[in-house]
């Protein structure tokens, strides 16, 4: 549905995207992960026909984003990062306006249906300016869905929402993703894991990794990490852990807990627990430590540097 080839975008002398290529299939939810300034928004703006690339080409639903921009725009629903809303219109009027621009017959009826879909039908006649941030985000999402687009492009759809609203918005996206192609950007790894079939990690305008969330994590995590906490003094605990067979490393964390690593598949946790208790410590907590996005980035950029040396 989306095919990007050698996409490059320069803002003056600053290169925002360099030679970006990827493809997504129909009915796929693809997550676009990267730090701020990585080029996520730029890519999305090119794909939605907002601005042309400096070099390279992109097609959406079979249409070129530069030469057949209007055809692309008809088939894409887009939620920009700063949700574009007219605060002096009511939610219903705003969606009706968007439906009219999309030339949908019975625009008012469709506007109301879409509001129901995002759970805002009770606020249809409220001015957008009086809605909470979460509600505004949902109005923005409704605007992107109103014409039942083949491709949905969402720039940070859950940013700034409270946890309950995040769950709601994710459920809506997952529901849509069953039939349509969704490209969404995020910087929260767990979000990508929950809703995306595939993840593209982008850094400095380049794709640095592309895989399913599970594979990506497995590939990057060479060992499993566990954090544990005991009552009272934990001095000497890391030395004790290092003596246990299978523990690769152990060290005291600044917050008073102790972290240790072991190779995947060789779960030493029962042995560790037994050893600690037998040595007279009171074990309070033992939990796995997931790899954060920051660490994945460090990992990936380290891989890059490593390959560079070879």
């Amino acid at each position: 549905m989306i095919r990007v080839e050698g996409l490059t975008k320069d803002y003056g002398s600053r290169r925002a995207l360099s030679d970006l290529s990827f493809e997504t299939g129909q009915g796929e939810v693809v997550g676009f992960l990267g730090p701020n300034g990585a080029g996520k928004t730029t890519t999305m703006r090119i794909l939605t026909g907002y601005m042309p690339p400096t070099e390279g080409s992109a097609t959406v639903a079979g249409y070129d984003v530069v030469t057949e921009s209007l055809e692309v725009r008809k088939r894409v629903g887009y939620l920009p990062e700063t949700v574009p809303l007219y605060t002096d219109m009511t939610a219903l009027d705003y969606l009706k306006f968007m439906a009219d621009l999309r030339q949908i017959p019975d625009s008012e009826e469709r506007a109301f249906e879409t509001l129901e879909m995002v759970g805002l039908d009770s606020r249809a006649n409220s001015f957008i300016g009086s809605l909470s941030k979460g509600m505004r985000q949902r109005v923005g999402l409704a605007q992107a869905l109103i014409h039942e687009p083949e491709v949905l492009i969402l720039d940070e759809p859950t940013i700034g929402l409270d946890p309950g609203q995040v769950v709601e918005v994710r459920n809506i996206i997952r529901e849509i993703g069953k039939q349509r192609t969704v490209l969404l950007s995020t910087h929260i790894l767990s979000e990508a894991q929950q809703i995306c079939d595939r993840v593209l990690i982008i850094n400095k305008g380049k794709i640095v990794a592309e895989d399913t969330p599970e594979n990506l994590q497995a590939r990057l995590v060479g060992s499993e990490r566990v954090s544990l906490r005991v009552r009272g003094d934990s001095d000497g605990l890391s030395k004790l852990l290092m003596k246990i067979k299978g523990v690769q490393s152990a060290h005291n964390a600044p917050d008073g807990s102790v972290e240790f690593q072991f190779a995947p598949g060789q779960d030493v946790r029962p042995l560790v627990a037994k050893t600690i208790v037998n040595s007279g410590y009171e074990l309070l907590e033992m939990r796995p430590v997931g790899l954060s996005l920051e660490e994945i980035f460090l990992e990936l950029t380290r891989e890059d540097a490593h390959r560079g040396k070879k």
């Binding site: 209007l70 725009r73 008809k74 700063t82 574009p84 968007m98 605007q143």
Partner: peptide, 14 residues
């Protein structure tokens, strides 16, 4: 100023 231009420029509108 408000960013709604992004909405209009990505709508099927010349």
């Amino acid at each position: 100023r408000t960013g709604t231009m992004e909405l209009l420029l990505t709508a099927p509108l010349r």
